[in-house]
């Protein structure tokens, strides 16, 4: 009996809001909008100045976000899509659903140069293998990892963003030799999970010595749990980057408001929320403004990344190599 009441209450509230203020609809991934994610703080800060009602719509992860947008096509309700990453940009651009943002992006603090008329970064991170600080002989490359008897858990690139990031990382460093590297890694891989949560859960459970995650993961344990026993392994060849972006939808009813939001996204009011809610690096905030604890994280050199077009072109081949190597 409660459900219809709650639902009609929500509809009523939404209706009342839209009567006098414009509603800016942002599609994003689920964890961005949760109570403990960046969503609530970002919403409050933007609504203070915009004279609008900002509404988030959560849609699974980055890949489901893009799928949802493709399903809806031109008739989408979204004004902004926030939470795609560089591996999804090429496919997203191809839909023709996005407009140029026209926002000055000169204050970006990414470790690589960024130039894109439609997609604007809001945070980023390095992929890395997380391990306990008491682990012996921590590998410094994929080949060392393959030679060691360390047990690792990774994510499936077909259903998980970090999994796809790892695929690209190995491809970037080893090129045509990637398949051989995967074959050598096969006996280190305890299992492949559908998503990040399962893999990280298995690692915390002691099923593996290392898990694929981000260099910022130890910051969570340190800051939120006061646990300094987790750290990330530094690989000499550099670490692959994940850059998360937002873009405004072509034909949005609130184009000016959407552009205002994208500009707001690169200000400290938005950026300073990111580190301890999304546990990633903010895309436009100097390192000196990061919270205490982030200075303890490893600093990979260099940050590696394919352009969206390269990533799209390499993806299927890299996946086939991965599958062939690990299916034996």
């Amino acid at each position: 009996m409660k459900t219809p009441l709650i639902a009609s209450g929500l509809i009523l509230a939404a209706g009342m809001a839209s009567a006098d203020t414009p509603v800016l609809t942002i599609y994003t991934y689920d964890s961005f909008t949760s109570d403990w994610g960046p969503g609530p703080a970002v919403e409050a800060a933007f609504e203070e100045t915009c004279g609008c009602d900002l509404q988030f719509v959560g849609a699974g992860d980055g890949a489901s976000l893009l799928a949802r947008l493709r399903l809806e096509g031109d008739s989408t309700d979204a004004d902004i899509v926030l939470g795609l990453d560089t591996n999804l940009i090429a496919a997203a651009r191809e839909t023709g659903l996005f407009a140029d943002h026209g926002v000055d992006a000169s204050n970006l603090t990414l470790p690589v140069a960024w130039q894109d008329d439609q997609f604007l970064p809001f945070d980023w991170g390095y992929f890395a293998f997380i391990h306990d600080t008491d682990m012996q002989n921590v590998p410094t490359s994929f080949t060392e990892l393959a030679e060691s008897d360390a047990r690792i858990v990774i994510q499936d690139p077909r259903s998980s963003t970090p999994g796809l990031g790892l695929l690209m990382w190995v491809k970037y460093v080893y090129g045509d030799a990637a398949e051989a590297v995967w074959e050598a890694l096969a006996d280190n891989i305890v299992t492949v999970t559908p998503g990040w949560s399962e893999a990280y859960g298995l690692f915390l459970e002691g099923e593996a010595d290392m898990v694929l995650s981000y260099t910022t993961s130890p910051a969570y344990h340190l800051i939120a749990e006061e646990d300094d026993t987790r750290t990330a392994a530094l690989f000499d060849a550099g670490h692959y980057l994940q850059i998360e972006v937002a873009a405004m939808v072509e034909g949005s009813d609130h184009a000016d408001l959407a552009r205002d939001f994208l500009a707001f996204m690169l200000t400290p009011a938005f950026q300073s929320v990111i580190p301890t809610t999304n546990w990633m690096y903010p895309a436009a905030l100097p390192a000196s403004d990061l919270p205490e604890g982030f200075d303890t994280l490893i600093q990979p050199q260099p940050g590696l990344i394919f352009t969206p077009e390269e990533a799209a072109a390499l993806r299927d081949e890299a996946l086939e190599e991965w599958r062939a190597a690990l299916s034996q």
């Binding site: 096969a186 891989i189 299992t191 492949v192 559908p194 399962e198």
Partner: peptide, 10 residues
């Protein structure tokens, strides 16, 4: 999820 997680790979 069960099959993939405990199955050990692709």
């Amino acid at each position: 999820a069960v099959a993939l997680t405990l199955g050990g790979g692709p």
